[in-house]
Amino acid sequence: MTTETATTTQVYRVWIKAAPERIWAAITDPEWNGRYAYQAQSFFELKPGGSFHAAASKDMKEYAAAQGFDLPDTIIDGEVIECDPPRRLVQTWRMLMDPTTAAEPFTRLTYEIEETKTQPGVCRLTLTHELTGAPATATMVASTEDGAAGGGWAWILSDLKTLLETGAPFAG
């Protein structure tokens, strides 16, 4: 893998003891996706050409105000490209909560949910984020061991796994 590839395509995998339908719901249903990671509900129109957006939570808005900056109501937007429940979701994705990332082009996010053959009841969730032309977004979503940028995709997927397997997110 070249340095250019590493910064423009990020791939994350997590194995979750849950049915594909539960994982799909945790990703696409705002009642689920608002319970883990940053607790920002995401709304999908689950069809090609359908809209996608994530809304800032009350806590996020309060934190931003305390830090002296405004946070838009819609913090991430995009469009559904492919939808094959409960196996595959492809969408565009743009972070709007920072002026630098908001100025970058839409990126491409793919979720793939696969049942494992050797471990009944366990699925592999692979998230691929294609970030060509979006270096600030690539930095924001990259996973870092010290938790910079909130921990990025690895942290989000780990919290999703924790919620599905234990019934409570990290902060819960």
Rank of each mutant, 00 (worst) to 15 (best):
Y111D: 00
T5G: 11
E45T: 13
P20A: 03
P169V: 02
D59G: 10
G34W: 01
E4L: 14
G50L: 00
R108D: 07
A142V: 08
V14K: 04
G147H: 00
A19M: 09
Y38Q: 11
I75L: 03
P105L: 10
V122R: 13
A26H: 08
T2P: 06
E4T: 13
D159G: 01
A6E: 12
A102W: 07
L157E: 01
E62T: 12
G172V: 00
T128C: 08
E21Y: 04
G150E: 05
Y38K: 07
K58G: 08
T3L: 15
G121Q: 08
P20S: 02
T166A: 09
G151P: 04
P120R: 14
T128Q: 09
K17V: 11
D29F: 05
K17D: 12
F106P: 08
Y12A: 11
C123Y: 01
R124G: 07
L127C: 06
E45R: 11
R22W: 02
A103P: 07
G152E: 09
T162V: 11
C123Q: 05
T128S: 12
A148L: 13
L160H: 05
S51M: 08
A148S: 14
G167P: 09
P72R: 06
R88F: 01
Q39P: 06
T107W: 04
G121P: 04
G50N: 02
M140N: 07
E130A: 08
L163N: 10
S51R: 12
C83N: 05
M95G: 03
A102M: 04
V122P: 04
Y111H: 06
A56S: 13
T128N: 10
I75G: 01
K61A: 13
A103E: 12
E114A: 15
R94L: 00
F170W: 14
D146R: 03
L89S: 06
A26G: 12
I113C: 02
Q91P: 10
K161M: 11
R87P: 05
T100A: 14
M1N: 14
W153G: 02
G172A: 07
L109R: 03
I113Y: 02
I23E: 01
E79Y: 00
M95Y: 05
T144E: 12
S143V: 03
Q41K: 15
P30K: 02
G49D: 08
T100M: 14
T128V: 15
L125Y: 04
R124K: 15
W24E: 04
T144R: 15
G151N: 05
A19P: 01
G34E: 01
T118H: 14
A134C: 10
E79R: 00
F69P: 11
W32H: 13
T132L: 12
A138I: 08
Q67A: 14
V11E: 09
V11C: 06
R108S: 08
F170G: 06
P169Y: 05
A102P: 02
